[in-house]
Design a protein around this nucleic acid. Structure first.
Length: 213
DNA sequence: GAATAGATTGTCT
DNA sequence: GACAATCTATTCT
């Protein structure tokens, strides 16, 4: 019901180069209408995966299977996959139809429903200083667990409830960070491409210190 | 703070 | 049968 007043980002936001979307999605708001109640979070870290040439992408070489099918579909839908048998990952499909590209959401900052996210994660909501625990959503697997995202939302249209993106306050000048991507050492020279974007000094960003500042 | 091991299963070779 | 766009607990320093 609260979502009545929300204006989702249109499909045209996603139907652009995957690098442009990965950059521009930092600071946008993720709205999840969950059975427990409405959850909202601000995207603070994302990575671009540009198949078919990008060796780190699941669609590398044009590999098109039941799992990767959503990446080949229309922009603005969700590509969701399971890693290490236990962690769900959320991606936004971008680019032209049949261009298998997607943006991995790596970290978000909780805005609304922090207690519910903590319940879904099975951890405490607050740290010793009474702030929302950074471990609530500072990683691709953690944020999916905190927002109740799994394969039931595979290929979901991200302009609609129960999972959509909407605008957020513009990033402050100089706060956009950029680096190589995380966890893809197997991808050779592709691993060194600066296709990761994040908000500097945001304590919900994942990775070692040098990749957060 | 850093380094390490172990968890756990769908997907692809 | 091996691997994977990770996370957690534990064991160091």
């Amino acid at each position: 019901m609260e979502s009545r007043s929300i204006t989702p980002l249109p499909h045209s936001f996603y139907a652009r180069s995957v690098l442009a979307v990965a950059r521009d999605v930092i600071g946008k708001t993720l709205v999840r209408n969950h059975p427990l109640g409405e959850l909202r979070a601000r995207i603070v870290e994302a990575e671009a995966y540009r198949g078919p040439e990008d060796r780190a992408a699941h669609s590398y070489g044009g590999r098109r299977t039941e799992r990767t099918e959503a990446m080949f579909g229309p922009a603005g839908h969700a590509y969701i996959f399971l890693l290490y048998g236990m962690h769900w990952h959320l991606n936004l499909v971008t680019g032209e139809y049949d261009a298998p590209q997607a943006v991995l959401i790596r970290a978000v900052e909780p805005l609304i429903g922090i207690e519910k996210m903590a319940a879904l994660r099975g951890v405490d909501a607050h740290d010793a200083q009474g702030r929302a625990h950074s471990t609530l959503t500072n990683g691709p697997g953690k944020l999916c667990q905190a927002l109740g995202i799994d394969s039931s939302l595979y290929a979901h249209d991200l302009t609609r409830s129960p999972l959509l993106l909407t605008d957020g306050p513009k990033l402050a000048r100089g706060q956009l960070g950029r680096s190589e991507r995380i966890g893809i050492d197997y991808a050779g020279s592709w691993a060194r491409k600066p296709w990761r974007f994040y908000e500097r000094e945001n304590r919900f960003v994942s990775g070692p210190r040098r990749l957060r500042s």
